[in-house]
């Protein structure tokens, strides 16, 4: 871990905009030094607003406080917070070359020319953009811009790295590649990072802990594994993957769910319930079956069995008890979650 890494603490941070929109309800959040946190949630849930409050681009409402390493930063301006920030549109300076963009923060900090040169080379090499150093910004592809934006943010050795949907503007294959590069980079640097996305697979891949948000609240905080397998409520369960409601386990206090890949197709004698195949989506490594078991909602099952399933067939399904997700029904509209 990076010895200079900073821990972050937010207490009671809320945001009401001038027009009366309450983008964030009062919330608490602690980020450990060196940790990568992903803010995950649907569009408009307040991820960007929370990130901008941490950055210092927005002020929190009265009563909220922000600490970097126990130091109260609430009223410190963004330019004094020593952060690195990557914007969705990159926001590279069009009046400067790639190299000038990268060293901008170093020049502002009045580093010696020697040190600036050295850091520049280091960044260019780390992001593999040596050949682009003298290009103008409008001569770069989307992926290259992304690398420059990252290099520029990291070059200043920030206490905290903030990334707002940095991959959204890229096409799918590039996104996958950059995602793993960013993941490696964050691990290597050990900078405390907060990464915003509405893409659950991006969140799973990058996060030490995921913060799931909905309607200005934090709904659940946990490791990707926890969030996926032990979601706190139906919203989280649905947001981070597909879930089915179990057709045969009824209980008014609990909702019993399972994930498509946790269902097994078994012999009729071992099955918990039978269902008719309504459609088959063959994906190569697996097949996704849509099943009808006399329920309002269809059930989705993923299987890797080497069997040519056909529409109309009837199959038997079994889900191991420990793979069931049980949710208290009263938990569905759960209020803000206490930070553990």
């Amino acid at each position: 871990m990076n010895p200079t890494a900073t821990s972050i603490k937010l207490t009671n941070c809320a945001k009401t905009f001038a027009d009366g929109t309450q983008a964030l309800k009062p919330l608490n959040l602690t980020v450990k030094a060196g940790e990568t946190i992903v803010l995950l949630g649907p569009s408009g849930c307040g991820k960007t607003t929370l990130l901008r409050i941490i950055a210092g681009l927005e002020a929190t409402d009265q009563g909220g406080e922000i600490y970097f390493n126990q130091q109260n930063m609430t009223s410190i301006a963004i330019e004094k917070r020593n952060i690195g920030m990557v914007f969705q549109s990159y926001a590279l300076f069009p009046n400067m070359s790639v190299a000038q963009n990268i060293v901008y923060g170093l020049k502002i900090r009045k580093l010696k020319p020697q040190a600036i040169k050295q850091r520049l080379d280091e960044m260019l090499e780390m992001m593999q953009i040596e050949a682009l150093a003298h290009r103008r910004i409008d001569q770069l592809s989307g992926g290259q811009r992304q690398r420059v934006a990252l290099a520029r943010a990291i070059a200043v050795r920030p206490n905290l790295l903030l990334l707002d949907e940095p991959l959204t503007a890229l096409d799918a294959s590039l996104r996958d590649r950059l995602r793993s590069e960013i993941s490696e980079l964050l691990q290597k640097l050990g900078i405390t990072s907060i990464y915003v996305t509405h893409d659950q697979s991006e969140a799973m891949a990058l996060a030490d802990r995921i913060v799931v948000m909905d309607e200005g609240r934090i709904v659940q905080i946990g490791s990707p594994y926890d969030i996926y397998h032990r979601p706190k409520n139906e919203f989280v369960a649905n947001f981070v993957g597909n879930v089915n409601q179990h057709p045969h386990v009824f209980n008014t206090d609990y909702l019993t769910l399972f994930r498509p890949e946790d269902a097994e197709i078994v012999e009729p004698s071992k099955g918990e319930f039978e269902a008719k195949i309504m459609s088959v989506l063959f994906l190569g490594d697996k097949s996704r079956l849509t099943l009808d078991c006399g329920f309002k909602k269809p059930i989705y099952v993923d299987t890797t069995l080497r069997q040519d399933f056909k529409t109309g067939m009837t199959i038997s399904i079994y889900v191991e008890p420990e793979r069931l997700i049980r949710l208290k029904t009263t938990d569905n509209s759960s209020a803000a979650v206490k930070e553990s």
């Binding site: 330019e79 300076f93 502002i108 520029r152």
Partner: peptide, 28 residues
């Protein structure tokens, strides 16, 4: 130009108002 965002990113890199005005706003 999305100069508003340019200014925010310059601020995140530590530039004060006048530094932003002279290095980002005016040149662009």
């Amino acid at each position: 130009t999305n100069f508003h965002e340019l200014e925010e990113s310059a601020a995140s890199l530590g530039a004060s108002f006048w530094q932003r005005f002279f290095t980002i706003i005016l040149p662009n």
